[in-house]
């Protein structure tokens, strides 16, 4: 075991992993984090804590991670390259690890232009690939990026994202290979809606043997409403929502769209359980944490295995 995290143990034991996500508040209300966490407790193996998601200032990811640990859940500390340079990143990693954080998801981060501080300077001192490699170097060589030795190096289970739905499609699987070579232990994909494209992507992943070098968790976000589906389809860069799904949600009729969205997500999870190369599902039910127990139950992933 590289890190001893629950998520790593679950994956290593060959269980189908089920992870969740939680967005910290736009203020100082720790109770809000605890409340959201209470819905996820026992339902998922690890909870991603977003890092100033969509470039909007929120409680820091590592601080919310600590609340989760206190509440008896395992966090997955998300870190974006937009807001900190290599010094701040490494010191946050040391601090978070000291408080018990064992998983990280290394991301580029949305451009600051989209958020609540569009005039901010984007740091991007290092990119997500370099961040992955830096965390690996800290863990495996016990060295900072600058080369100095770390006393008691942080042992992190290293996660990264992959988006099979952004052009150039041909390149995405190579970029995944590049992330694996840089040190990625597990991948959480962009939310999957276009199953055809995802099947194609996974076929290439399997052909290249990448699934044997890293665990791949498929991203699932249930559609809550038609408005959400249309918004994601047209406004969120790098997302692919096929018309057939929009039509299906439309066909569900008034008051039944959310249920149809959950049904689609459940069908996806069923297929992912059988899909070669897929090691689990990452459920991103943002601001819908209270529905996670029901979704987990209906997806047949409960009880979560104890490693």
């Amino acid at each position: 075991m590289k890190s001893g995290s629950n998520l790593e143990a679950i994956l290593e034991a060959g269980h189908f992993a089920f992870t969740g996500e939680l967005g910290p508040p736009r203020g100082t209300n720790g109770e809000e984090v605890k409340k959201k966490a209470s819905y996820l407790k026992g339902m998922v193996d690890s909870v991603n804590i977003t890092d100033n998601q969509t470039s909007v200032v929120r409680m820091s990811s590592w601080a919310a991670c600590i609340i989760l640990i206190q509440e008896g859940l395992e966090p997955n500390f998300q870190m974006v390259c937009r807001d900190r340079n290599r010094l701040a990143m490494q010191s946050d990693i040391l601090g978070a690890y000291t408080h018990g954080v064992r998983n990280m998801l290394c991301l580029s981060g949305d451009h600051q232009k989209f958020g609540d501080h569009p005039d901010a300077m984007g740091v991007f001192d290092i990119d997500s690939m370099q961040l992955i490699n830096m965390v690996k170097q800290m863990r495996d060589e016990g060295k900072f990026l600058g080369g100095a030795d770390i006393e008691d190096p942080p042992k992190i289970f290293i996660g990264a994202a992959s988006n099979p739905f952004a052009e150039p499609y041909e390149w995405r699987v190579h970029r995944l290979a590049k992330k694996i070579n840089a040190g990625t232990d597990f991948i959480q994909t962009q939310c999957v809606y276009n199953m055809d494209r995802f099947r194609e992507f996974m076929k290439r992943v399997v052909d290249m043997g990448l699934h044997e070098k890293c665990y791949i968790l498929a991203g699932v976000t249930p559609m809550k409403s038609l408005g959400m589906a249309r918004y994601i389809a047209s406004q969120v860069p790098g997302m692919d929502v096929p018309d057939s799904l929009i039509d299906r949600l439309k066909g569900a009729g008034k008051g039944k769209v959310a249920e149809e969205g959950i049904k689609f997500a459940l069908e996806q999870i069923e297929e992912f359980k059988e899909m070669e190369g897929v090691a689990g599902v990452h459920l991103m039910a943002i601001e819908w944490e209270h529905r996670v127990p029901e979704i987990a139950e209906r997806a047949g992933v409960l009880p979560r295995p104890k490693p």
Binding site: S108, K113, G122, D127, M129, N163, E167, R175, A182, G238
Partner: peptide, 15 residues
């Protein structure tokens, strides 16, 4: 826009 040395990021939108 992010000055990436190992791009592209996941935000590429129809090119």
């Amino acid at each position: 826009a992010k000055g990436l040395y190992n791009g592209p990021c996941g935000g590429t939108n129809k090119g």
